[in-house]
Every structure is written in C-alpha cells, then in structure tokens.
Design a protein around this nucleic acid. Structure first.
Lengths: 222, 222, 222, 222
DNA sequence: CATGAATGAGCTTTCATTCAT
DNA sequence: AATGAATGAAAGCTCATTCAT
C-alpha cells in the first residue's frame, strides 16, 4: 500500500545498509554508547532483522572492523605500484591512505579510535590490520635499506626491532595526522601526505646511511 | 586474617586509593565498560564512599584525566632544561615522556586511548593536555628553525600549518611508539626515545634547511 | 495453570493495565513510596515494558493524574444539566462527584492526596483540575446570586474574593467528605451529597440575601 | 577555636533545633524527599546526633506530627472559652485555627499535606489529631442542636452520622481555606474565619431547626 | 522476509543508618 | 556531647537479546 517503504530487498543489500549504519553509529558514538536500536533505525529496519543477519552487537562490530580494515588496506594496495622504488611506494601509499581516511571518516574512527579501546575481541582484530600496515611499511624500509646498501656500500645495520620501531613511529605519525586532518577544514590528503613525507623521509634516509642521531654525553642509556 | 582491611583512613588517603583504582580500571576496560562496582572493589571500599568523595562516574573520570595529564606534563617539564638547545630539549623531553608512560601504563592508556574517544566532556579535557604538548613541540621546532636560520642564513619558511602538522606527526609518532613499547617486553624508554629521535630529527633538520621532500612528477596536488 | 499470564497483548490494552496498576499503587503508597517494580508486577509485566510505553516514573504519574482528572471532570459534567437552576445543578454535580469518587477511590486518592503534595510538575497538574471545579462552583454561586438579586431586589454584593473563598470552602468540604466517605463503610454517595447540600446551601442562600454572619463585639478584625 | 560554633548545648535545646529543622524540611519537601542530611545540616548538627536524639527518620517524623498537632490543638483550645455559646465558640475556634496555621505554615503542611499521604504509621497519627478536632466540632454542633431544641421545642433529630458528616464537612472546608489562605497573599486569619462562618453557620442553623434541604423529585437516592 | 511485543540482567545513583573515636 | 568515616539495600532506568506471529 504505497511505495514509501520498499521491502523484501535481497539479503546482500540489506546487510550493507545495516553495516553502513553500524559503521556510522559506532564511529560517531563509540561501541558502547551506540545502541542497537539506533543502528536499526538508521538502517531503516527492525531490530530483529539486524540480529537475524548479524547475530549480535559484538559480531556486528567485528564485521565493521573487518570490512573497514579490508577497504583501507585495499585502497592503499591499489594506490601502490610494487615495481616502483621504495620512496615512491611510500609516497603513493601515504597519499592513498590519507585519501581513503578523508573519504571514510567514520570507518577511520572505528579503526583508529574505537576498535583499539574496546578490549579484547576487538583490539586484536584492529591490531591485525594495523600489523599488516606496519609490516608493509617495514618491508619498504627494509627494501630501501637494501637499495642504499647496494648504492653506498655501507650497511645500515638496521636490526629487526629498529625497523619495527620506525614503522610504528611512521604509522603512528600517519594516524595522528589523519585524525588531525579530519578535524581540520581545508586540509587535503595531498598536504597530509607531504607533511608526513617531509617529516619522515630524510630521517629514514639518514638512518639508512648509518647516520644515526645520538645523544650527547651525560645522558646514559638507563 | 591480617591487615588486609585497614579501615577508617583519612579522606585524603582513601581518595588517592580510589583514583588509583579508577585509573587502572578505566585504563584497562575503558570508560563505559568500567563499572563503579569494579572500581570500588579494587579500591577496597564500598560504592557509596566512592560517590561521597568523587560524586559521579563522570567526575571521577575527569579527575583521573586531569591527574594523569598533570603528572605527565610535570614529568616532561622536570626532565627538560629550557636553557639547552632545542635538539637536546627534544631528546630530554622524549626520554622523560617515554619513561613516564612506561611507568604509568594505565594512566597513559587513559590519556591516549580512553579519554579522546569518550566524547565531549572528556575529549576536550585530554585534548587540552595534548594541545599543550603539541604546542611545546611546536615551540621547539620554531626555535630550532630560527637557530638554523641564523647559522645557515637560509630561511626555512615554515608556515604555521607546517609547524602544526609536523608537531602532530611527531607527537603521534611518540604516542604510537609509547603504546607499542608498553606492549613490547624489554623495550626501554631510552630505546623508544632514540628510535623517535632517529626517525624525526634528521627530517626536521632538513626541513629547516629548506630541503623539502617533494614527489616526482605525475602526482599532481589534487 | 490457567490463563493467568496471557501474553502478547496489543499495546493499547497493556498500556491501560499499566495505568490501572499505577493509579492503584500511587493512590495507596504515594508517589515516592511506590516503586516501578511494584507497579510492573501488579500490571503483570516487566519493568522495561513500563518504561517502553510510559517513559518514566514522572510521566507515568502525570499520565495518571491527567487520566483520573479527565474522568472525574467528565463524570461531573455528564451528571449536570446546565439548563437547570443553580441549586439543582449543584445537587446533581455533588451526586455525580461523590458517586465517581466512591467508585474510583484510588484515582481520588491520587488526585486529592498524592498529586498536590508532590511538588511542582504534579501539584499544578492537579491544581488545574481543582481550579476548573472551583471555577465551576464559583459560576454556580454567581448565577444563584444573580437569580436571588432578581427575585429579592437585594444585591448580594459578593466580591470576587468572597466567591473564591466560598468555592474553596465548598470544594474543600466536598473533598473532605469524599475521603471520609471512602473510609466509612455503608456511606453512600447520596448521603454524602445530601450532607454537603444541607451543610452549604442554606449558608450560601443566606449570603445571597445579604444576611451575613458577623461576630459579636470584642473580636476586632486584626 | 573561635566562638562561631557554640557546642555542648543542653539536650533540650538541640532537640528543639532539630525538630524545627525537620518540620521545615518535611513541610516543604515532603517526607520521602526530605533527607536526613538536609535536616541535620539545617539544624547545624551532625547526622549521628540526630539519630542519637531522635532514633530514626520515622520516629522523627512522628515526633514532628505530634508536636505540631499538640501545638495546633493547644492554640485552638486557648482561643475558646467553653462557657460561651456554641456559635461564639466556633467563631473563636476558627479564628484561633486560622491564626495558628497562618503562623506555622510548615507545621500545617506537615499535618495537612504530608502526614496523611505517607501511609500507615503516620496517617493514623495525623488522623488522631484530626479526629479530636472533628469530635470537638461535633460537640459544638451537638450543643447548639440541644440549645436550639430547648428554644424552639423542635427536635433537630441529628443522628450521630449526621453530626459526623457535618463535622467532616466543616473541618474539610476549614482545611481547604487554610491551605488556600497560606497561598494567597493578603489573606488574613480574620477573613478566613469569616468566610467559613458565613459559609457554614446558616446551614448548620437551618439543620438544627430541622429545615433540611432535600432534592426535588426525580433524583432517587440510589 | 520481517516485526511488534516482551524481558533478564546490569548500571549509576541515593539514602537511612551505624561504627570508632 | 559529638562526629568523620563507612556501608547495605534498594530505586530508577537502559540495553542487548528473543519470542510469536
């Protein structure tokens, strides 16, 4: 009786609507503060249907984390050409990263703010994705180190933990800038990527040439 | 059977016990997931006493944020000698920062993970502290830029937004490394600080000499 | 064992059941002493359902006041024929009033005892209804005064405040008698109405003929 | 160590302070909404002291009811000269009643609004006092009836229940007017008493001369 | 495929009341 | 005579979750 409410949609479509509503709600309110009522209403369906398709709040949140992580990883991967030199891969990856986070702020909020703070099933789920990115960045750093080695015949002697630490720093810096950019009107993905590149590349480059920074005397490493 | 339950303590002492318990619980569970029951039990008191002294969950959380922020800022300030050159100030500050966050992981979790994600009364409370640190880092960068200018007679031309972005990146990197260090056994504050210094100083130094990184052709700033 | 717990009823029905239970509980226990648990149990539903339909204790109480006030006013209005002389209107109104209060003692308790003593959202809600009744009684007194004026050519000179005071007295007397009747077995509405009519009508009649009562000497109006 | 807080007062004085504070708080807030904290603070003592002297909230409220009832009864009794004719006794009693309730609005609120609505230990406590007043009024009516009988040789034939009903009506009217007067600025006790006297005396007088009001035909007593 | 009706469990908060000094 | 410290018990309210249709 009327076409206002289109019902009987295929499962796939309904499911995407629900997940979209969930990501938006979780991203803006947080996991705990988001209520299933709100999500169902925003999705335009009844609560039992949400449960029929997504089973529970926990599974729904996990599904959101997974979907958004996949999307972010895919976006970065799509932006990068593995045949280019490491430096340009990093640039391309950062650009893709900031572009995606700017276009999906709620998804980024779910991944960066909500998931890691909600305790165990979720933190590790989000950690898995972050780990993939950190590892990928680590690969780039390693590759660059090796290239430098070949060119300069100086061994950067980057231990595994060094690489891990640097990757963490770079990813952390990117996260921080991404969040800040989402709150700063007029800030483009290009600017964000340039900021980060400027900030990090020379430091990384030096490291690879074994030119480490070290504290002056007096401050002993304890 | 012992002195496990010492009762009738002066208000000041009890209040500190409660705040300690609260920081631990909030840091590990998150604001919403932490229950006042749990905090009271951990503090070894009854719930009404928590309310008598701290008034409400919201006020309790705010008090935790403030106390931990104060402590962190104080620790960093105590570690830094403003008469030293910027480079060494940064090193000392990072060392103090990583030392404090390593010694107070729950407090650090409250400040870095929980407070910023819990919406309005809290996010801005924590943002205030982060803002102070970012501003302080910005000062260091500015000072270093000026010094470089004097030495090299080259103007770094760092716009305000550049400084802001770099500070965000540096602080984000530090946060990321601090959190990662807290999860990585055997990682010392000294190592964390060195990692970050290595990562960032050369990049910053280059910037100040106007040696910016720029993408090769093809990737237009859109 | 039986049909004691019939479930899945339409909202309208459940809502009436809840209001009935609420009126009974509020009337007997008072607003503060009545617990939502008790009301829900008496209504045969769970507490969340009460909140789902009626929103809060405050709204529930307000709804009770309104419903019972409406019912009482409607009962009195239905019992009165506005074309009759004032005297007979008063009689009919009193009879309807006492009949209704006798049949709905809990509703009457809510209106007369509980609502006016529970402070501001409620007192004025109940006051509104009492005001309507007082005003209606005032109209009757005014009409009777005018009729008397026409017949006897003596001006009753009833000032507004006189009318208000008399109405208050009459309504107060009726309230008192209604409450007393509800506590007195065998007391019929007819008897109550007759008592009040006897008590008041002659006094009012005298007033209208300007035959005021006045204290003998000695007691000066200060 | 100054004289700001005079301590160690005799029990009698402290107790009166507490009761004064209690009457004020109960009268304004209601029994349930009044908290022992509030009462203790208003009385200027610590909570345990209130318990030491008055034992419990329930006993405290009961004590308030009793004290205020006693005071009201005493005031009315003091205003009446039992050797005067019933009519003048009524006038004097009403005047004393309205004077006292106007001077002690909180006490009157406790007696008239709070006590009767708070369920069982209290309602009957307040009912006892009300009963005394109703009975006293009944005595006056009875005395007046007898006097009338003697003068007019007509038997008013007032059954006990008639007297009771009339007393209830008169007392209810007085209560209503007292409460209304307390809310109406500029309304004096003298005016209140006159209003009530005008309203009731003629009606009572008629009754005593067996001139009852009776409904016209049609409205049968069922 | 889809939902209106319903609830168990838990949370924050308050309050009368009591110890120990 | 007087109090700061402390609590058991309960109340209002919310939410994820499930029937029955």
């Amino acid at each position: 009786m009327g076409a206002t409410k289109v019902k009987r949609m295929p499962r796939e479509v309904r499911e995407r609507q629900m997940m979209d509503a969930a990501v938006q709600t979780f991203g803006q309110r947080g996991y705990q503060a988001a209520s299933m009522d709100e999500i169902a209403e925003l999705a335009g369906v009844s609560k039992p249907l949400v449960y029929l398709y997504l089973n529970s709040k926990e599974e729904l949140f996990t599904a959101c984390i997974r979907r958004e992580a996949q999307a972010l990883l895919a976006a970065v991967a799509a932006g990068v050409d593995a045949r280019l030199p490491a430096e340009e891969q990093l640039w391309a990856g950062l650009l893709a990263f900031f572009t995606h986070t700017a276009e999906h702020p709620d998804g980024w909020a779910v991944l960066s703010r909500q998931a890691p703070t909600q305790g165990e099933p979720f933190a590790s789920e989000a950690g898995r994705m972050r780990g993939e990115i950190v590892a990928y960045v680590g690969t780039l750093i390693g590759a660059a180190a090796e290239a430098t080695h070949r060119e300069t015949h100086r061994d950067p002697e980057l231990a595994e933990r060094d690489v891990a630490g640097l990757s963490q720093a770079l990813v952390g810096a990117a996260e921080s800038v991404a969040t800040w950019a989402n709150e700063t009107p007029g800030m483009t993905a290009w600017e964000s990527a340039a900021t980060l590149m400027n900030f990090s590349w020379a430091g990384l480059g030096n490291l690879m040439k074994s030119e480490r920074w070290s504290p002056r005397a007096g401050s002993d490493p304890r």
